[in-house]
Every structure is written in structure tokens, then in C-alpha cells.
Design a protein around this nucleic acid. Structure first.
Length: 791
DNA sequence: TAGTTTTAAGTTTTT
DNA sequence: CTTAAAACTA
């Protein structure tokens, strides 16, 4: 680098000399870091080092400009990005730790905990997810099917994305039906009475509060002098409004985005936000980052040619700084099993000579369901993998039940939680009783404002009031339920008064009694902190016993899941704030923490295209490039353009090698369906690809020459036992005692005995999990595979 | 009414 | 093929 002054704005003339950690940046990046005008829009292509610019800028402001880190707010869209940004900024200067780095939603929750009262919200609110919203709508739309409720919940969520209230004229754009407005209004009303918020409220309510309370706005403008937004192209209208309200006249705002990477339009993201940013924030400077440090030129060419077919884009050409590189490989495969095998073979082959770590590989797919095939096959082949994505863990019945108990504990107005758990396990409390309690709790009429403090809508209090008038059965059940809640609450409240920070809980609560009191309790272990409360609640409410006795096999798993939830809770203090923090964390970040230690760290990544944003891998396989899968359905115009951007995002994750796979036939809904190659494949100049195989109907139109390349060999592995091995063979010669097998459900095992019967050989197998299974050789289930012994 | 069996439906993508 | 919702039985 020349060492000359970077192109900075005139105001920067009194700059100190360039610190060493800036010297590695290219001139545009440096300019972005040093920029100090009014507001800055960074148009940053994939792999152009935008995260680096933001983190460096944070460190620079703290270190060179003497800025108080607490006055810096950086907003991202995913928790992963927030964490990574914090880590990287801290590496440059530890003081950057003091900056606030959060997702939009987590920031909204943080704001509302402190300022919610300005909008009629207590600090003890719980965040409703889409399922909870649908459940609440169920109390409004008496006889609607689950599907209808979900559609309605979705529409309301979208209305909030667009910052539309039930009164907004534009509401018709979401759903033109007359009832929508009414239901949305009633939903808001009920949510307000209950005192909880949904996802959309985490953005929308702060905006409303900042607008209606200038003092609050001023406080924020005083505190946050610098605001940065990453992945700005994914901001929706409501988030844009929030950004505007957070910026005072003195606030420096810097947003970073790439219009080609906007992939959340379906969730209300508006590319307009980028295009119109300079109009909305006067004095905006624009810096473009087009040098790509991640991918080879060959990969960028393939990625660009697809997104280049989009009409609505600013248009830019990324310059690779990494040389030409290998041509991406496009493989046409017969079906999805071959696709899975192809991936496994590629990965296997890369482990030869200079072995390539598993973690260099990522397999991308369009829908989460597609991970299944890879998982089973990789398990079988012992290829270590990790699945990135939202965890189904929190969708599980037992977990949701436990969370509902906890939610009700902190907010006794939570009707959704109450309805879910008051009679589970059965306590003889029927719907009629529940309805009476709810009515009693919320009778104060629709337009009387909820009195502060004294619980209007307190369902526990209402239940207690009604107790004498209930039938004996219901009375007993309600009393038991209330007693459980009371006991759990006492665990939270009579904690030692010294404010115990999460990690300074050096005196674990005295009594962890695993099994004492009740012999039926199936040993849920309480650890530290909040887990004591979780375990107590789950056991006393009878949930543990309920699931345990329900069914030996799956019951055990459910107990394990509950145990895992309790373990997670042990990181939080056993107090009401601790519980709120725990619930909020679960609601807002459902990706599980990287479990450290367990299993190998070197693993292949299985991930949806959407989830890859911000990540990079040396080798990427983009799967399912078929019409209907990717792009999904027959999308048109904007929708199709969004799918192209998604392709672009996926392809630009690859540093060194890129593979594309397309199947001729795919199983869907259990039926086999013939597939056409993805439209995107036609949009890539064939000369930039190396093509293996051919699509089902005639040659690949754009590359007849390469199409003649011999198709990949049949992948798979031996199904016959290695010759010359001793052992007891079945009469049909397919099995021998001692041979290893794999079952999709039970895992690895071995054949322990072979008997002959009228219907042929009977194979008796024992699995490593302890499960035993017998089956006829003749009727070998497709779930069972014989595998070669590792000798 | 609770728990079971039968039938229908369905798959984006995420905070 | 899996999962959720309606239908049915004890």
C-alpha cells in the first residue's frame, strides 16, 4: 500500500496516521472505515469484506476517534452475524466489547424491556412465536381450522413487517378480505390485554414509542451516536422506520448491503430501502466494494451470469482477486439418491492425497426437508456432518409444554400458555372451566385500560377466585395447578437477595433433590441456577411423569429433551429476570450453541441456501437444481428474481470449488416425479462450466460437447460380504453372522444369529443402541443396509 | 373425555 | 413418505 492518505472526506484532514490494522484494507475499504460525514451507504458485493469493514470501523472509532463504545449500535439480522461481528471487533480492540451488537429483534426486545411502559407494556412480557399467535387467533376465530389460523397469523406478521396497523388503508394489500382488519384489530387488543408481544411488535412498538415520546427518542439519540446496519438489503419497512427513529440529527448512520443478496422479500424485506436510502438520509455518501477476496473468477462468472438476468438491480460486476480457478462442475444425476452418493463420493475423494478437511465442504439445499437424505447416508458412511438451521427441538411438544409453564410463571395473563398446560397432564379441567376462568380474568370490558400493577387478566388470580364454585374434579385440578405454579414462583423469588450475575452464581442453590420426595419422578437432574426451577416445575406439574409413562421408547427421549432444556436453563440465574432472559433467548435464537467437545469438530456443513448468507466454504455443492425445487414452483417476475439472488448467494459462498447437481427424477410426497433442469442452468454460459452427464430429455442445450462426457460411475458400496471371510452364512448367501448392518432408526448393529424358517432365513440382529430386531432375509426392509466391515 | 386409529394433507425460505 | 387433523372406540 502506498501509505498516502486514503480518499477520505475533507473533515478527516486532521486524521492521525493510518494505524497498522488498516493497512491491509484496500482503498475503498479504508475510505469506508475512515468516512466521517453524515451518513454512509456501502454497496458491498459478496465476499468484498464488508463485515471486516464494519468491525474495523467499530474498533477504529473506539481506538482512534476516542468514541465511547457504548454509544455505538450495530444491527444485524442473524444472531450468528451479531456474534461473529462482536468477536472480530473485540479482536482488534477489546474495548469494542462495550458496543451494542444485536439483531434487530433482539434490540427491539432490549428496548421494550426498558421502555415498554411508554407503550402500555410491562417489562415481564414474553415473546409469542407464530404458533402462539395462531393459538391466540384461535380464541378469536372460533371455528377456524389450524391452517386458516396459520395463514391469518402469517398475514398479521406481514402487516407488521410493513408497519401497517389495523387502521392503515394499505392493509388491503396484505389481505383484502373485510374480516382481516377486524381480526387483526381484535388480535392486537387481546395481545395487549395479555401483555405479550409477537415478533413484529419487537420492531413496530419501539417505533411507535419513539414517535409518541420525544423524550425517549432524545435519550436514545444522546446515547447512540453511531448506528450501523449490516445486510441492509434485508431490512423491511418497519425496520427502516425504526432506523429512522433511532437516528437523531447528530447520529452518524452507516448501512451496508448488496441488492443482489436480498433474499427475504417474502418476509417483507424491501430492496427499496437500499435504493432510496440516499433520499431518506440527506448527505449520504456512497462507497462501492466490488473486489471479491473470496471466490475464484470462474465461480464468480457462474454466479454473476445468473443474477445478471435480473432486471431490477443496480448492476455491478465483481472483480475476483483470487485468479481464474477451476471451472465449476455441473452434474446431471438420475435421482436424489445418486445426488447424495455423488456428494459423498466427492467428499470422500477429497480426503485422499493431501486430505481436505470435512469442514471445507458445504452442501446447500432449498428446503430443510432435503437434509434428511444426506443425513442418513452420511451417517451410514460415517461422514461427520452438522446441520445448520432452526432446531426442531423447540417445536417438540414436551418442550413447548415446559416453555408454556415457564411463560405462565412470568406472565399469569398469558392465555395461550395457560390453555396449553392447565390441563396437561389431565387434571379434570375441561374447556368449559377454562373458558370461565378466561372470561373472569378479562371481564373488565374491552375499552377499560388495563390497570397498571394490579393484575387485570391475571388468570391465576381469576382461577383462585372461581375455585369455590367449581365442580370437585375441576377444583382439585385447578388447585393442584395453582399450587405447582406457586411453588415454582417461590423458587424464583426467595433467591438470595445479592444480585447474582449469570456467571457468578458460585453458591448453587442448596437443594437439588433429584429423586427424594416422589419415587415416580424419573430423575430429571437439576443443575445450577434456573434449572432448579425448570426441573421442579416440569416434575411437579406432572409433565415428566406424563411423558415417561406414556411410552417407553419415545418417553425416554422426551425426558432427555426436557433434561436438555433444564441444562440450558442452568446458565441463567434463578430469578424472574433470569427466567425472562432465558425465554427471550430461546425465542430469538433457536440455533443451538455449537456444542463444544462432543463429536468431531471437523464436519461437513448441511445448510439451506438462505442460511448460508455471511458464510464461506472452500468447496460448495449446490443441490436440487431442478425446475420446481430451485427455483421453487413456477415463480415469476419478482419471485423469480429473488430465487436468482438466492442462487447468487449460494454460489458466492464458494472459495475454491463449486459443484451444481440436478436430478432427472425426484421423490416427492413418496411418489417419483420427473424433473426438468433448473432454468438457472440455462442462464449460465456453458463454457464456464464443466458438465457431467446429461439431463433426461436430450442433451443439455447449451453444452453438447461436454454433455458427452461419460456420466459419473454408479455410486454405492458393496452389498455382498467380502470374499474369503469365514462365518455362518444364511442359505441365500446374503448374510453372515457378525456382519455389520445399519438401520435408519436404530443405527449401527450386527447380525448375531441366523436361523432358517419356512419363509427363508431369519436374521437376528442386535444394535449398538441395545435394540434387538429380527427380520426375514426375504423381506429385508429398505431401512436396513448391510455395510462392509471395517477390518 | 381421553386416547387411539384412520384419513387427509403437505414443503419454502427465518427473526 | 412423513405429519397433522378428523373420526372413532373404550
Amino acid at each position: 500500500m502506498s501509505g498516502g492518505a486514503p480518499p477520505a472526506s475533507p473533515a478527516m484532514s486532521d486524521q492521525p496516521p493510518i494505524p497498522p490494522y488498516l493497512e491491509d484494507l484496500n482503498p475503498e475499504q479504508q475510505a469506508a472505515v475512515l468516512h466521517a460525514g453524515r451518513s454512509l451507504l456501502i454497496l458491498a458485493g459478496a465476499g468484498s469484506g464488508k463485515t471486516r469493514v464494519i468491525t474495523t470501523k467499530i474498533a477504529y472509532l473506539v481506538r482512534e476517534r476516542g468514541m465511547d463504545p457504548r454509544s455505538i449500535l450495530a444491527v444485524t439480522f442473524t444472531n450468528r452475524a451479531a456474534r461473529e461481528m462482536a468477536d472480530r471487533a473485540r479482536l482488534i480492540d477489546h474495548r469494542a466489547e462495550g458496543a451494542m451488537l444485536r439483531t434487530f429483534h433482539s434490540f427491539g426486545a432490549w428496548f421494550l424491556r426498558r421502555n415498554g411502559s411508554l407503550g402500555g407494556l410491562g417489562s415481564g412480557f414474553v415473546i409469542y412465536d407464530d404458533d402462539d399467535s395462531a393459538a391466540l387467533l384461535g380464541t378469536i376465530m372460533e371455528n377456524a381450522s389450524k391452517a386458516e389460523l396459520r395463514v391469518m397469523a402469517h398475514n398479521i406478521a406481514r402487516a407488521k413487517d410493513y408497519f401497517l396497523t389495523p387502521e392503515s388503508p394499505d392493509l388491503d394489500l396484505i389481505d383484502y378480505q373485510r374480516e382481516f382488519r377486524t381480526i387483526y384489530r381484535r388480535y392486537e387488543e387481546r395481545l395487549r390485554q395479555i401483555g405479550n408481544v409477537d415478533f413484529g411488535d419487537l420492531i413496530k412498538k419501539p417505533v411507535e414509542i419513539l414517535r409518541s415520546t420525544p423524550e425517549a427518542a432524545r435519550r436514545f439519540h444522546d446515547r447512540f451516536r453511531v448506528i450501523m446496519v449490516d445486510e441492509y438489503q434485508d431490512a423491511n419497512i418497519a425496520q427502516f422506520e425504526l432506523l429512522k427513529e433511532l437516528c437523531g440529527s447528530e447520529t452518524y448512520v452507516c448501512v451496508v448491503g448488496d441488492d443482489d443478496q436480498s433474499i427475504y422479500r417474502f418476509r417483507g424485506a424491501e430492496v427499496k430501502n437500499i435504493l432510496e436510502f440516499p433520499d431518506r438520509f440527506s448527505g449520504t455518501d456512497i462507497i462501492r466494494l466490488v473486489r471479491n477476496y473470496r471466490s475464484t473468477a470462474a465461480i464468480l462468472r457462474a454466479a454473476s451470469s445468473v443474477v445478471g438476468h435480473n432486471r431490477d438491480r443496480l448492476g455491478k460486476e465483481l472483480q475476483s482477486e483470487r485468479g481464474e480457478g477451476k471451472r465449476p462442475v455441473l452434474a446431471f444425476l438420475p435421482n436424489q439418491d445418486e445426488e447424495v452418493s455423488f456428494c459423498a463420493e466427492l467428499i470422500g475423494a477429497s480426503r485422499a492425497s493431501p486430505p481436505c478437511p470435512y469442514s471445507d465442504w458445504a452442501i446447500l439445499y432449498r428446503t430443510n426437508a432435503q437434509s434428511l437424505g444426506f443425513e442418513t447416508e452420511f451417517l451410514r458412511r460415517r461422514i461427520p456432518y452438522r446441520v445448520v438451521g432452526t432446531l426442531k427441538f423447540y417445536e417438540r411438544e414436551e418442550i413447548k409444554d415446559a416453555l408454556a409453564l415457564l411463560s405462565f410463571l412470568v406472565n399469569p395473563r398469558d392465555e395461550v400458555a395457560f390453555r396449553r398446560v392447565v390441563n396437561k397432564p389431565a387434571r379434570g379441567v375441561g374447556p368449559a372451566t377454562v373458558d370461565r376462568i378466561v372470561a373472569e380474568a378479562f371481564t373488565d370490558g374491552p375499552d377499560s385500560p388495563p390497570p397498571a400493577g394490579e393484575a387485570a387478566g391475571d388468570l391465576a388470580a381469576a382461577a383462585r377466585r372461581l375455585l369455590p364454585g367449581l365442580s370437585a374434579k375441576a377444583r382439585g385440578g385447578i388447585a393442584a395447578f395453582l399450587a405447582v405454579m406457586d411453588q415454582a414462583r417461590s423458587l424464583l423469588e426467595k433467591q438470595p437477595p445479592p444480585p447474582a450475575p449469570p456467571d457468578a452464581a458460585d453458591h448453587p442453590p442448596a437443594d437439588h433433590r433429584p429423586t427424594d420426595k416422589n419415587p415416580l419422578k424419573k430423575g430429571l437432574r437439576a443443575g445450577e441456577g434456573l434449572s432448579v426451577c425448570v426441573v421442579s416445575l416440569v416434575e411437579d406439574a406432572g409433565l415428566a411423569e406424563y411423558h415417561y409413562s406414556h411410552d417407553e421408547v419415545s418417553g425416554n427421549q422426551r425426558i432427555n429433551n426436557l433434561q436438555e432444556l433444564a441444562n440450558a436453563a442452568s446458565l441463567y440465574p434463578a430469578s424472574v429476570p433470569g427466567l425472562l432472559e432465558f425465554l427471550e433467548h430461546i425465542e430469538l435464537d433457536r440455533s443451538l450453541e455449537e456444542e463444544t467437545g462432543e463429536g468431531p469438530q471437523d464436519r461437513v456443513t448441511l445448510i439451506t441456501y438462505h442460511n448460508t448468507k455471511g458464510l464461506e466454504f472452500r468447496r460448495v455443492i449446490m443441490t436440487g437444481l431442478e425446475q420446481g425445487v430451485f427455483p421453487r414452483e413456477d415463480k415469476e417476475w419478482e419471485d423469480l428474481e429473488e430465487e436468482r439472488r438466492l442462487f447468487y448467494v449460494g454460489a458466492t459462498r464458494a472459495m475454491d470449488e463449486l459443484y451444481l447437481t440436478s436430478c432427472a427424477v425426484r421423490r416427492m410426497y413418496g411418489r417419483t416425479k420427473a424433473m426438468d433442469p433448473s432454468l438457472f442452468l440455462n442462464e449460465i454460459d456453458p463454457s464456464v462450466l464443466r458438465v457431467l452427464g446429461a439431463p433426461p430429455y436430450g442433451p443439455f442445450p447449451l453444452n453438447r460437447a461436454s454433455a458427452s462426457v461419460r456420466p459419473p460411475r454408479a455410486y454405492g458400496y458393496p452389498l455382498t460380504p467380502p470374499a474369503g471371510k469365514k462365518g455362518l452364512f444364511s442359505s441365500d448367501g446374503r448374510w453372515q453372522v457378525g456382519c455389520r448392518i445399519f438401520h435408519d432408526d436404530y443405527g449401527y448393529g450386527g447380525v448375531v444369529a441366523i436361523e432358517e424358517s419356512d419363509e427363508g432365513p431369519v436374521i437376528r440382529a442386535c444394535f449398538d443402541t441395545g435394540k434387538k430386531l429380527s427380520f426375514l432375509s426375504l423381506h429385508q426392509s429398505s431401512r436396513i443396509t448391510k455395510i462392509e466391515d471395517d477390518l
